[in-house]
């Protein structure tokens, strides 16, 4: 009696998703038309915006992990939180870097401290802070509590970042997609952008889950090799 082994693993899905990311990048470089105002350099949007969205989504996962950890007081949810913080930091740094590189030929500056950029920078700082905090406090309820509280703060920054271009005067332009009156992006361009956002969203979730699994396995490995019975 042989059970058919499921071919679906998180690693397999990640491979497929990364291939789709690559396809979206090809579309961004070779299929979508050029922009009337910015010329070719606007194609950075197809990486910058999906990356930003992924960093927000990671904060959402971090919020879930943090709230569950605070409620159950269990260590178990810290692995999810830690994975979300790592992936969140990754995408936030990527967003800041691509945004800065895009800013130079368009705005004329690599950086400015307007509300959008400042709150985004804060997000990166807090994600990094989470990882440092986790490493600094010894295992126990105190660590779970502190990290979870920071996780909630990180999630609170996300709507502020999103609304910053509406609430304050900024160099960064207002929202392009989600706005009253419909999006201000041409159809072809918008399709590839939405495709990119969707794919990057699933990629970030997948990365978080693989990392969480790995962290759990690492713990299992440590317990087994130390001869500790859980």
């Amino acid at each position: 009696m042989t059970a058919r082994k499921s071919k679906f693993t998180l690693a397999n899905s990640l491979t497929v998703l990364l291939a789709l990311v690559f396809v979206q990048w090809l579309l961004a470089w070779f299929w979508v038309p050029v922009d009337e105002a910015q010329g070719e350099v606007y194609r950075i949007v197809y990486l910058h915006v999906p990356g930003a969205f992924a960093s927000f989504l990671s904060a959402g996962v971090l919020l879930v992990g943090s709230l569950l950890a605070l409620r159950s007081k269990s260590e178990h949810w810290l692995n999810l939180s830690r994975a979300a913080a790592e992936v969140g930091l990754l995408f936030t740094l990527l967003t800041l870097a691509t945004g800065s590189i895009w800013g130079k030929p368009t705005w004329g500056v690599w950086w400015t401290w307007d509300a959008r950029l400042t709150t985004s920078f804060l997000l990166a700082l807090m994600y990094g802070g989470w990882i440092l905090l986790f490493g600094a406090i010894p295992q126990g309820p105190s660590r779970t509590r502190s990290c979870s509280i920071l996780g909630v703060m990180i999630a609170a920054d996300v709507p502020i970042i999103y609304k910053s271009v509406t609430w304050w005067r900024t160099l960064h332009q207002p929202q392009t997609i989600l706005r009253t009156g419909g999006s201000t992006m041409d159809g072809d361009m918008l399709s590839v952008l939405l495709f990119g956002i969707a794919i990057m969203a699933v990629v970030s979730i997948n990365l978080i889950l693989v990392r969480q699994e790995t962290l759990s396995l690492e713990q299992e490995l440590e317990e087994k090799s130390l001869g500790v019975t859980s």
Partner: peptide
């Protein structure tokens, strides 16, 4: 610094497709 609008439009022969009001508002 240049502050541009949130529009992305493909170029057309008939001139700019940009909406000046959007830039004014921001």
């Amino acid at each position: 610094m240049v502050k541009h609008s949130e529009e992305y439009k493909k170029p057309t022969a008939g001139g700019s497709n940009m909406n000046k009001e959007l830039l004014e508002k921001s």
